[in-house]
Design a protein around this nucleic acid. Structure first.
Lengths: 208, 208
DNA sequence: CAGCCTACCTACCGATCGGTAGCCTATCAG
DNA sequence: CTGATAGGCTACCGATCGGTAGGTAGGCTG
């Protein structure tokens, strides 16, 4: 009864969400036309409206999927058994891996950060807040155990997330300027750089 | 003859550019209506067209001003007399100072990074390329003199710029979530964090 | 004074936007 | 068989988009 079936409803919805994701990533909310999204899937605009009653709704569904995918993946990393340094390293690995495999999602999240302060009514709560709180919690936990230095946690996390998020945004530009070969290897090194940076900031200085 | 005069031509142009800057920062290129920009200055839309023949032109003028202001300010830092480490530190100070006093500009540059790969025809060349090349040059120069470790320069620069640029974008969101007091002190610490990070990455490890 | 140019205006253009109304068809349950 | 529902369609709506046409008021220059 519930065999393969590939429910045509879900299938069209899925295709619409995927197409919308691409458009929102490329051109942003205002720059995206729901006509184009519908056309990309091969249906008419009213048919899209049949699945998603408004453009805002379509957008927030896309956003919801992104947040869910990101949170579930990273939650696993945060639940990893180990000491604080290992947890952070695993988080970095996961976050980088997610970014590089979800370039469009990263672009949409960055656009959301840019637009949201002016559109708080609709999608207000920030999807990365709980994540950031947990990261700060891990650092502070490590500091209580004296395995981390007493530096402020939040700015370090921001620079960590920012370095990676920014890299995702700037990579296409880098590729088109320096040539794709120059930017092709960056992904492999990025996680190591961030982990080294974290250690440098958090581990007790060997000079003191 | 060329006394105060406050040339009304230049004045309206200036006001239009300032208003456009605000709109482009808040809502992006597609989300900005030239009607609104004109209205914000108190003139009609065709009058705006009189000063800037197309919306694209208005946008690229805004972008040009931003790039010019940023480049001249940072160029001074790069011409500073001193060793490589000092140069980089002064650059970080200048870049952070510029960011925090030009929040709208930072937001526009980030939007540009997001949109540009799909709009290369118009404003193509990246405004930060020469800057980035020079930074890489400084690092490699330091490496030749053996005062810097042999790590790859470009990824470090990207994480540096990225951390700061991202902070500017995320600050309004942080403020509305953690309260403005939580994010108010970040600007003061940020330059120090970045400089410490740079030293950690570039200076010879004291453990080895 | 005559001519011109600058800075602005109102009125309008076609195109496109998000969204609605209403119809058709296929599927599926009673 | 019948009725309901889901998923799609064409045709249309008012609003707004970027941009144009054409005119006017004021200042500068010959």
């Amino acid at each position: 009864m519930l065999a393969q079936k590939t429910s045509p409803v879900r299938d069209t919805r899925e295709q619409l969400l995927l197409a919308a994701e691409q458009f929102f990533a490329d051109k942003g909310f205002y720059g995206t036309s729901i006509r184009d999204v519908a056309q990309a899937v091969g249906i008419s605009k009213p048919s899209l409206i049949h699945h998603f009653p408004t453009k805002e709704n379509l957008y927030s569904e896309v956003l919801k999927r992104i947040a869910h995918g990101l949170n579930t993946r990273l939650q696993q990393a945060l639940e990893y058994e180990g000491n604080e340094r290992e947890k952070l390293h695993i988080f970095v690995d996961r976050f980088c891996a997610w970014s590089f495999t979800h370039e469009n999602d990263a672009r949409i999240l960055m656009r959301e950060l840019l637009d949201n302060p002016k559109r708080l009514e609709n999608v207000h709560t920030w999807h990365l807040k709980s994540l950031m709180d947990q990261l700060v919690g891990i650092i502070e936990s490590g500091q209580k155990k004296n395995v981390f230095r007493e530096v402020e946690a939040l700015p370090i996390i921001i620079n960590l997330l920012g370095g990676q998020h920014y890299l995702m945004i700037v990579m296409p530009t880098l590729g088109s300027i320096y040539g794709n070969n120059a930017s092709s290897g960056l992904d492999l090194k990025q996680a190591d750089i961030l982990k080294r940076m974290l250690d440098g900031e958090l581990l007790p200085s060997t000079t003191a």
